[in-house]
Design a protein around this nucleic acid. Structure first.
Lengths: 343, 343
DNA sequence: TTGTACGCGTTATCAC
DNA sequence: GTGATAACGCGTACAA
């Protein structure tokens, strides 16, 4: 055990500041916190001393006394996934740098680990919790009767008393179709991923509804379900072209599928978007911006979802009742060259 | 301001436990913390009471008393990027669920916000800091003479007294070439990204060294530098094929570039890997697994980097001196079909 | 083996 | 306008 050598600028406390300023601890506290009953000159001395010593109030002590820590827990289940991160960023944004700090925990999809993290967070007296799921299907409550408010984001809770904030996948599917119809498409197909995902069916549902509104129906009658891969996008597109060569637009359930579709279309000699328009879902930067041509897509507004979740949590922490239920955040259309020729 | 209704199971303290168990606070404390001087039967009573009340020790109070909070700060600059996350996950892993909690802060590449977050973290009395950069080039110290140890991960600090842990890009470039040479390639080209990145030059340097060791030199003499995009990968590959049609392998500085190269090669009628082998860099799941064929790549071991960083920080927190300097973490070859025919 | 008393750093209440 | 004092919840020397 070597003695800690240079890094240690011993932690400075209010006592040090008070001593340097030649006042009592309580006066120093008042001066720093902008309390009214303190002479301007004294306040000046205290402030100066604090600055000189680079004083940082001990948030642990403040929290202990105040009964609130100024922290929230962010419990996610798929950090590696691309859903948690934007939500997390939105939340961090909404909380504002410094005012509230965020504990990040990744449960790796393991319920045991999740409970473990939950206990740790409660022990640290977080003022609230945001639970971010790994897939858009419902999950059970993380726990009942917690002493702090909880907001479920992206993945909704099955418990009716929990508050959840999720993506409006139905609306997203509708948006995609409306865009295709508005740009003159009439023979529209839908290629999507795993049909056991609720989101998959919701997007298809929105698409069908929008088609009906336009007096149209899906080419082939039903969506083509498969996996969230480019390979499936290519394969499904080839089948589609052979069975319905007159298709003039494809709504893909993900950007990966859409990239596969683009490749298959190009290799079949179809011009995009002239012969066939393609729109994806997710608006995943690395995919949409590297496509040929750039891929139109539906953005889930995850960052905004995170912001709203954080604000909801904020309100609840401030004592406002958090009503159970599910709220949705609308998707956003991001048109690019794969649906709209810019030439 | 509505009264907080049902969610509030009032926070239970050690006092409550002690009262229920019919002992003093200190005895309860000893029993819960496994201190020796307490009768087995008493301990049983206390434990039972704690469980019954679902008691969670207040970590704020513990931290205040112990002088250490059991938290660390993770200060990143590009959450949206794909570098921070694996590092962050590795760190979280190493810290162990619950023992240490992680404060996550994203400075969005803004120095002001970074200082803001730093102050907040110090105020919360984190026991240590990990600073994760957004690009692999050196950065200046986040601050000097901090009261807690700091480990720089992925992006190194320019200050010689800081400890940094970075990717061995030279070794990565070497690995790629050695793999190509070992699988029988002799006319190897290198297409890479932004030459103002240190990592770009390091990878090229490692590649050159490995080629020299094998008595070879780069096709075209020099690497082709451009941008980290598929478009550049396609363009550079076309140029390469026209100038050096006998090329039999391409080492690409990123997976995006490699995907572009794959497309251009296929469109030029070259079989992969029979005619030309392709290897990328980053091992970015969505890219390598959706390629035709699947893309061999160099993995930067970022998760392991995060783990090592966390362990280093741990040791420093425990009083071990953290020597300044830069340590590297070796890359890892992940061969797939784009370099090795499995048929 | 158990209980009492003190202190961690801060803020709020009450004397002065 | 300022300072002493009591909390917040916990761990630990010390006394019983």
């Amino acid at each position: 055990m070597t003695e800690n050598p240079s890094p240690a600028t011993r932690t400075v406390t209010l006592t040090d500041v008070a001593r340097l300023a030649g006042v009592s601890i309580s006066t120093a506290s008042k001066a720093l916190n902008g309390r009214a009953q303190v002479k301007a000159q004294t306040r000046e001395r205290v402030l100066h001393a604090a600055e000189q010593l680079n004083f940082q109030p001990n948030a642990l002590a403040q929290g202990l006394l105040a009964g609130r820590s100024g922290t929230v827990g962010l419990l996610t289940s798929d950090l590696e996934g691309r859903f948690s991160i934007p939500v997390l960023m939105g939340a961090e944004d909404a909380f504002g740098a410094g005012r509230v700090s965020v504990f990040l925990c990744d449960a790796r999809g393991d319920a045991i680990r999740e409970q473990h993290h939950l206990q740790a967070l409660l022990s640290r007296r977080v003022d609230g919790l945001i639970v971010v799921g790994s897939r858009p299907d419902p999950r059970s409550s993380i726990a009942r009767n917690l002493p702090v408010p909880v907001v479920y984001a992206y993945q909704q809770s099955t418990h009716p008393e929990d508050f959840s904030l999720v993506v409006d996948n139905v609306g997203g599917g509708r948006l995609a179709i409306e865009h295709l119809v508005a740009t003159g498409r009439r023979r529209i197909a839908h290629i999507s991923g795993d049909p056991t995902y609720g989101a998959t069916m919701d997007r298809a549902k929105g698409a069908k509804a929008a088609l009906e509104d336009a007096g149209l129906e899906l080419v082939g009658g039903e969506p083509l379900f498969g996996t969230w891969t480019e390979a499936w996008g290519r394969g499904a597109t080839r089948v589609l072209l052979s069975q319905h060569p007159d298709v003039d637009a494809i709504f893909c359930g993900s950007d990966q599928i859409a990239r596969g579709a683009l490749d298959a279309l190009r290799e079949a000699g179809r011009d995009i978007p002239h012969d066939v328009a393609v729109i994806g879902f997710d608006n995943w930067e690395v995919l949409v911006m590297n496509s040929r041509p750039n891929l139109s897509s539906i953005d889930m507004n995850l960052e905004k979802l995170g912001q709203i979740a954080a604000n909801k949590l904020f309100a609840a922490i401030d004592g406002q009742k958090l009503e159970g239920g599910v709220e949705t955040v609308p998707c956003r259309l991001v048109p690019r060259e794969s649906t709209t020729p810019f030439a």
